[in-house]
Write a protein that binds this DNA or RNA. Structure first.
Ligand code: FES
Ligand code: FES
Lengths: 144, 144
DNA sequence: AACCAAATATGATTTAAATCATGTTTTAAA
DNA sequence: TTTAAAACATGATTTAAATCATATTTGGTT
């Protein structure tokens, strides 16, 4: 469904949010451990997220990553996915035709479009704040 | 969403079905051309489908691949996907946790499960015959 | 100013998926 | 019974994603 890069990216972002919620800035090492991801790889992903203005990074001693509390409810999952995997998930053909089209549809186009739209809607309507809450309350998990 | 192997596999199966519908047995070369896939790669995929009893193969001169007309409406998309990609699409965690679970859910579990179930239902309820019809009538396409 | 802890940048390596190549077996027809 | 056209089997190569490694920049602290 999503690339591993994207999966890690989402998990990292949720973790940062859950910590920022209680004004806790977090560093790479901590993030990688808490979401069970390879550290160096995670570093790259965090940079993408940072450039996409999804997370905020602070360099130097005492630096780390954070997300302003006010922004959390505005950041939707779809932004993370789009920043990392692009829009192929929402616009790509289910059977791999070079582009999905109404006028030149593949055999599963109509059926697949629905699923794809459901997914897009879900990602558009899910914000970071709700997801971070689940972590904070211990109802949901970011590793294993 | 699906692997390329699986995409080609579905396209190949639909093409074979559309031809078998008019009692036309088809060979590898023809299949690869009509679905715009690499020939040698397609050969491997056809063997998987053959061993999975999704398509029937006939060796030797005049041989090729076919699907008995009576079986077409019984073959569901999900069988093809399961044979090639396994069940990861239906059972895997959306955020890449090693296994999806109700008791140890990731933050998007509930939301993602719905999408995944929709997809599974679609694949379970779509049979080869309907898909082959679209090709025959020229309403849908298997390449470009 | 010197130092250190952090993010950032860039490139190398590994791994898995996709693709290619070649030889073997089967079977109808000549 | 030879031949040729087909599927079948297996291994090699290529490509892209994932992972690792290393050097650089930034910014607070001493
Ligand atoms: S053309 Fe295949 S999903 Fe639209
Ligand atoms: S645990 Fe992630 S989707 Fe179920």
């Amino acid at each position: 469904m999503f690339s591993k890069t994207c999966e890690y990216g989402i998990r990292a972002t949720i973790f940062i949010a859950s910590q920022s919620y209680q004004d806790n800035r977090v560093g790479l090492k901590d993030i990688a451990e808490k979401i069970d991801s390879p550290e160096a790889f995670t570093a790259k992903i965090l940079q993408i997220l940072s450039k996409s203005n999804i997370i905020h990074s602070i360099k130097g001693v005492g630096g780390g990553f954070e997300i302003p509390k006010e922004k959390m409810s505005q950041i939707k999952l779809i932004q993370i996915v789009a920043a990392i995997d692009g829009d192929r998930v929402f616009t790509g053909c289910g059977l791999g035709l070079s582009h999905c089209s109404e006028t030149h549809p593949c055999p599963v186009h109509d059926r697949f479009k629905e699923i794809r739209n459901n997914l897009a809607n879900m990602l558009e309507n899910t914000n970071l704040e709700e997801l971070a809450m689940g972590i904070k309350s211990g109802d949901t998990f970011l590793r294993y």
